[in-house]
C-alpha cells in the first residue's frame, strides 16, 4: 500500500507525461483519484489560459470590425461571430479535427495540429474570440456618448482615441460579462478529450481521468464529484483574479459607482 505522499509524487504530473508510466489499475484509493484528476486539471488550465489570452486580442479586433461602418470589415466579423456562437462547440471540435487531419495529409508542416495541445487550443481560441467579441461589441455600443464627445473635443483621433478612450471604457463595461465567458471557457475545456481529440499515452485532462476511474471502479459517485470540486475551485480563482482586474479598471471612479462584479451568465456557450 503506497502512502498518499508517494502517490502524489508519482502521479501529480502524470497528465503531462512525468512520473509513473502506468496508471493505477486496482485497489483505487481516494488519494489516487484526487491526485490524477488534479493532474488532469493542468490541461484544463493550459487550454483555458492560452485560449483566453490569445482570444482576447482577436475578440477586440472582431468587436471593432463588427461595429465598423465599412461592410468589408463588418460582414466577415458578423459571419464569424454567428458561425461560432450559433453552433455547439462539440460540432466545432469535430469539424476542426477533420480539417486538421486533411491539412496534415497534404503538408507535413501541419503535423502538430491534430494533437490536442495545439489543435484544441486553436478551436477554443476561435470559439472564445467569437463569444468575447459579442460581449465587447455590446459594450462598445453602450459607451456613453459624453466619453466620445470629450475625446473629440480634445482632438483625439484614430488610434490614440481608441487606445485612450474607447478601449478602456469598453473593457470596463464588458468586464463582468467577460468574467463569465472566462468561466465557461474553462468549463468547455472539459470537452477536448471527451469528444474531440484523442488522448495519447493516457495523458488527458481532468475529465479523462475522472472517467477512467469511473470506468475502472464502476462507481461514478466518487470521481465526478471530485472533478466538480476542482472546477468549483478553479471558478473561484477565476472570479478572484478577474475581480482584481475589475477593481483596477474602475479605480478612477468614485467607489460607490463601481459596478460590483456581478457574475451573470450573459454570454455563454
Amino acid at each position: 500500500m503506497k502512502t498518499c505522499a508517494q502517490t502524489v509524487s508519482d502521479y501529480a504530473f502524470r497528465a503531462i507525461g512525468y512520473g509513473e508510466r502506468l496508471l493505477p489499475r486496482s485497489d483505487f484509493t481516494i488519494c489516487e483519484q484526487f491526485t490524477l484528476i488534479g493532474s488532469g486539471m493542468i490541461w484544463n488550465i493550459y487550454f483555458g489560459v492560452i485560449a483566453l489570452c490569445t482570444g482576447f486580442f482577436f475578440a477586440v479586433a472582431l468587436a471593432v470590425g463588427k461595429s465598423s461602418e465599412r461592410w468589408i470589415y463588418r460582414r466577415p466579423s458578423e459571419l464569424f461571430i454567428f458561425l461560432f456562437r450559433g453552433s455547439p462547440l462539440f460540432i466545432q471540435f469535430f469539424f476542426a479535427y477533420f480539417f486538421f487531419l486533411s491539412l496534415k495529409k497534404n503538408y507535413a508542416f501541419f503535423d502538430p495540429l491534430t494533437a490536442a495541445w495545439l489543435g484544441a487550443v486553436i478551436v477554443l481560441f476561435l470559439n472564445t474570440a467569437a463569444y468575447s467579441a459579442e460581449i465587447f461589441y455590446g459594450a462598445l455600443r453602450s459607451i456613453p456618448k459624453g466619453d466620445t464627445e470629450a475625446a473629440d473635443a480634445y482632438g483625439l483621433t484614430g488610434w490614440s482615441r481608441f487606445r485612450r478612450i474607447i478601449f478602456p471604457t469598453m473593457m470596463r463595461l464588458a468586464w463582468p460579462a467577460y468574467t463569465n465567458e472566462a468561466i465557461f471557457l474553462f468549463h468547455a475545456t472539459a470537452l477536448v478529450f471527451f469528444s474531440a481529440f484523442p488522448a495519447r499515452g493516457q495523458k488527458g485532462d481532468a475529465l479523462y481521468y475522472a472517467s477512467y476511474f469511473a470506468d475502472k471502479t464502476f462507481n461514478p459517485f466518487v470521481p465526478y464529484p471530485i472533478l466538480a470540486f476542482y472546477f468549483i475551485l478553479l471558478t473561484l480563482v477565476v472570479i478572484g483574479i478577474f475581480g482584481v482586474v475589475n477593481r483596477q479598471l474602475n479605480r478612477h471612479l468614485p467607489q460607490a459607482a463601481v459596478p460590483k462584479l456581478r457574475v451573470r451568465p450573459n454570454l455563454i456557450r
Binding site: 468549463h187 472539459a190 466538480a228 472546477f231 468549483i232 473561484l236
Partner: peptide, 8 residues
C-alpha cells in the same frame, strides 16, 4: 454554475 455541465 461552478461545475461543467458534462461532469454533472
Amino acid at each position: 454554475r461552478g461545475v461543467p455541465d458534462i461532469a454533472f
